[in-house]
Design a binder for these strands. Sequence first.
DNA 1: GAGCAGTTTTGGATCGATCCAATATTTCCA
DNA 2: TGGAAATATTGGATCGATCCAAAACTGCTC
Lengths: 352, 352
Amino acid sequence: MPDGIGGAERRRVTLDEVARDAGVSRSTVSLVLRDSPLVAEGTRERVRASMEALGYVYNRGAANLRASRTNTVGLLVCDVSNPFFAELTAGIDEVLDGAGVSTFLVNTNESPEKQERSLQRMREQNVDGVILCPASGSSPDLVERLRRWGMPLVQALRYVSARDGDYAGSDYQLGMEMITEHLIRLGHRRIALVGGNLVHSALSDRRTGFTNAMRRHGLAPDLIVRSPLNRRASAEAVGALLDRADPPTAAIGFNDIVAFGMMLGLTDRGLEAGCDFAVAGFDDVPEAALSRPALTTVSTLPFQIGQEAAQLLLRRIVDPNGSPERVILPTRLIIRESCGAAPRRERGLTRG
Amino acid sequence: MPDGIGGAERRRVTLDEVARDAGVSRSTVSLVLRDSPLVAEGTRERVRASMEALGYVYNRGAANLRASRTNTVGLLVCDVSNPFFAELTAGIDEVLDGAGVSTFLVNTNESPEKQERSLQRMREQNVDGVILCPASGSSPDLVERLRRWGMPLVQALRYVSARDGDYAGSDYQLGMEMITEHLIRLGHRRIALVGGNLVHSALSDRRTGFTNAMRRHGLAPDLIVRSPLNRRASAEAVGALLDRADPPTAAIGFNDIVAFGMMLGLTDRGLEAGCDFAVAGFDDVPEAALSRPALTTVSTLPFQIGQEAAQLLLRRIVDPNGSPERVILPTRLIIRESCGAAPRRERGLTRG
DNA sequence: GAGCAGTTTTGGATCGATCCAATATTTCCA
DNA sequence: TGGAAATATTGGATCGATCCAAAACTGCTC
């Protein structure tokens, strides 16, 4: 029995065999593989034909061992099933795949330990670089350690230290200032900021923006509610706010999901966002335009952040000692109905 | 200048150096690395100490070249930013990461061409196996081709051929039968199935389930609407249904997103789901319990499907010639308010 | 047809681990 | 105490590519 049941155990065709078949040397075949301009047109065709005929499959593992680059990178996100990270992932995939780079994905679940293990593993895999959304509670020397490893690193969406290393994200602080200013302009004086129970830059940047805008108008930024980023908790949070002795008249969600949850909480009390209470979101997910009332929010473009992060990493891999870049995409205020500013949409489907 | 600016270009410490430092052979160090029971306790500790002292980093690339397994797998999903695929991805990551396997992620965007290129690349990377959600329009001989490559393959959520190869998914057909039966039991006679404009098994299975249930009760399954899987299109679709000469009294969405869109379409016409028209969803996303009215739907557990798919792939890698398995998770009918069956929820937050 | 520049091609060393058959060491019992 | 069995350790070959310096070809000019 030459082959075992099933016969799947085919031996791999190597460069040497292709070379023999084409009547050239292994080195020449290698050059053809890498599209080197050194090899003559006729030879190239002959080699290509042999590869085809023998069913040659390139062995990246073997190449990686010798070559300096592996054309692989690591991507560590905190929670893929959060649509925001998922969009980011899609943007990254688009750019990296286009550049012929394969991506190792890890879902850290906000666990610094899993993040640590995964980074170590990425290093063992010899990836050319890493894109990291640091888990809440990441050690602050993380960037420095990766630098010592000689491992190109781009942080995305969040950063461990505001002054260190490459980063791609949105201007959360400015975005939050804009939406807060918008509410103040509409006459609100008691405004709450709801959502977020972990510690990371994306949260503190928003808090800073909120606090800055409030203080600028002599208002107290005292209604900051720490709560999980889901609908139910947010609905409960808005209820607690309304039960206060000094209830707010408006609330900004950490993100759109929180805002939707708050609208739900209002509905359950017989109140309506945009009429009885102003609700604002953050991120502008597709659903924001389609909620009733449509959500006033701030767009943050996670897909584009992903693209930027990937491009930045590719640059850093080529030029490891270039000076760090911080790509901050602008945010945009999207005024719809939930803060009561825009005219009520008439019945029927209009563009949100 | 011994080190260049930045000094990141550290040479790698190899097994040989560790061996020299520990006063043993390279082979012994290799055995320690792989936790072989062959090596004596004292030796093991001495080697470990040397690895620590020299800052040794395992080189998986080198190991992969020689060893038969690479402990990497490929994961090809159609659309990571679809929460359903994202949950699947999270489930897969959990199991594979736990097994010490790294995952290459590719987002195929429903493009058979990108899928093809990516599979080829996975093959070149020498992955131990692949988990694939086949893109709509995948060639039917895909499974056979991977088999010829000797590449373990598990299809997830969708399959190219109903009779071929390993697969993990939900029982879409039965789920759809259950929800259709539910509506019929409530007295509905004209029922529509809305959403889905691509061709793949997850869609055709649902159609089959719907058709079967309708026929079983002598009803015509003629209201099958092909439309994109987003809210806006679904809202428009329900409008078109209501404008018909023979409008339905109930509609089932391909998934919950479609159902939410239909509820939106009803709202915009001044109608309410659960009172004036029955709306059912499919998947039971977290939001389903929190919509108003709460959505009656079918749970399909994508995270668990991911776990099952990953476990199945690991089994298949160990035993490539084992007979194919099809892991079909049961679906469950979740009755809430949107079909008018359950008593209306009183005001206030109750468990959905 | 020698010399030279430019273009192609080549063989051997190398990357850093695993595999394997052989050898060295220890243990244990007759 | 001799020797078989069990336990530890080892060196050389190997995986399949890339790198590099040298060699072999061109074509051209004088």
